[in-house]
Design a protein around this nucleic acid. Structure first.
Lengths: 254, 254
DNA sequence: CTGGGTCTCGTACACCGTACAAGGGCTCTC
DNA sequence: GAGAGCCCTTGTACGGTGTACGAGACCCAG
């Protein structure tokens, strides 16, 4: 029974997870349920994207009216925050433990995180602007901390190292997933889309000099294979750099 | 005179910059102008945020009706894309050249990029989902390529190295700016906001074990100073890792 | 039978992006 | 001077959005 009046007491709550109230039971005639709402949301977000996702459409999917959802949830943002945390749950932490050494665990975590972002193109805009303090996000964060802690870096370097690796993964996953999303929306393959995007400045005489500089890199890129091969290769190389860098910094302070 | 019919021929154009049409002159009675529109947009976005930014509000700011804007611009998204590119123009590339060595130039570029993202909290959600192929973005990208090229890394490693550094900066800037934005929206200092966010799991008995693991890091963090000091320190350390990693990888292939 | 909680729905409000057509004012041509 | 035509601005309208509010429908306890 948290109605508007109660909600108004907490006007700028910055995350659902800071709300202490428990989830609604949900044995009503419509068979609604917070978990069902979140699951349906993820399905719709995956299929139609963040832009088309609306309370009315979600409600229709669940054979219910929009306002029914508000019994289980305070705002649309809360649904998205729940959905986002559920995505963190897709990351298989047991598999991470199976990898050997902190290097292996960091690689495994980075890859799983990146794959999650790419699989759900709506996730990275959300992850970027919410707090990510749900239980699944925290669990992933803890695993990350454990891995970073084992690098042998000094205490004051641990947060920086965590950022170096996982803010990179977030950025990379964002780039990759949004590129894929826009290509799909334009009805093109990623390869065609890449060609079109490059054409924006390749054809512009003002950028002729710059293009000459880039040409070598672009050519190497194209000759290497498809865009999706490139995503893999560059990601792997970046991780190599990061791990090498951590090893060096750890050795320096021994 | 690109009207709806013409626009429909290019239904899913993925960037303003792929449009060939030149900007509208704009000597009309209202003194409107694409540059004026973009400048006003940046001002409003800085002050009120992406969520409150609307065509009607922007038009009111310019003493004009919403539909007038559509003479100079095809969609709201186009305005944002123009505004975003203008932000890249704030990055002082001449100052970057003044820094010594590729290490210095990478540090200078990274810092300037991060500062830009933090100064304009609306920028990182946008930068994440648009293509960033406007003239200013390309100019920055070119400077980045030049710096990376001088690292001595093999050709096939250059894109990965670029990503390692600048997707990290993007991710870090996103985290920092969105954290600042949410704190401001909640009417708190970043320090208070941080405390509240941590409390979400610190108080939860389920996470007691995890918190024990984190405690050392959190304590070190708090003892080090304010949140904004921490942002600086961790960013610097992450860049140290990245540069060390690049140096190692370059040496390996010599 | 009568509450009162749990859940769903209908209606309504303010706001959004933008399509469309109707102008006003200017300049250029006859 | 009259008219045509372009540049720019506006009014109105459509189909959406999130969600506040109040009215019910159902069920279970007293």
């Amino acid at each position: 029974m948290v109605k508007a009046a109660d909600r108004a007491k907490n006007p700028a709550r910055s995350s659902v997870w800071l709300e202490k109230r428990a989830a609604r039971a949900g044995g009503g005639p419509a068979g609604l349920d917070r978990d069902r709402i979140v699951a349906a949301s993820i399905r719709m977000l995956d299929e139609e994207g963040l832009a088309k996702f609306s309370m009315r459409r979600l409600a229709a999917e669940l054979n219910v009216t929009a306002m029914s959802l508000y019994w289980y949830v305070d705002t649309k943002d809360d649904i998205i925050e729940f959905a986002l945390d559920a995505l963190y749950g897709e990351i298989d932490l047991a598999a991470v433990d199976a990898a050997g050494g902190w290097q292996g665990r960091i690689r495994a975590l980075a890859l799983a995180f990146r794959r999650m972002l790419v699989r759900h193109a709506w996730a990275s805009p959300c992850a970027g602007s919410y707090l990510n303090i749900g239980p699944n996000a925290i669990a992933v964060g803890t695993k990350i901390q454990e891995a970073i802690r084992d690098t042998g870096l000094p205490l004051h370097g641990l947060p920086g190292a965590m950022s170096a690796v996982f803010q990179f993964v977030y950025g990379y996953g964002t780039l990759e997933s949004q590129f894929g999303r826009r290509a799909a929306e334009a009805g093109m393959s990623q390869d065609d889309f890449f060609t079109e995007a490059v054409s924006a400045f390749r054809d512009d005489p003002e950028f002729a000099v710059q293009v000459a500089d880039m040409k070598e890199i672009l050519d190497e890129r194209v000759s290497h294979g498809s865009v999706s091969d490139i995503w893999e290769r560059d990601f792997a190389y970046a991780l190599d750099i990061l791990i090498a860098g951590i090893e060096v910094m750890a050795a320096r302070t021994e």
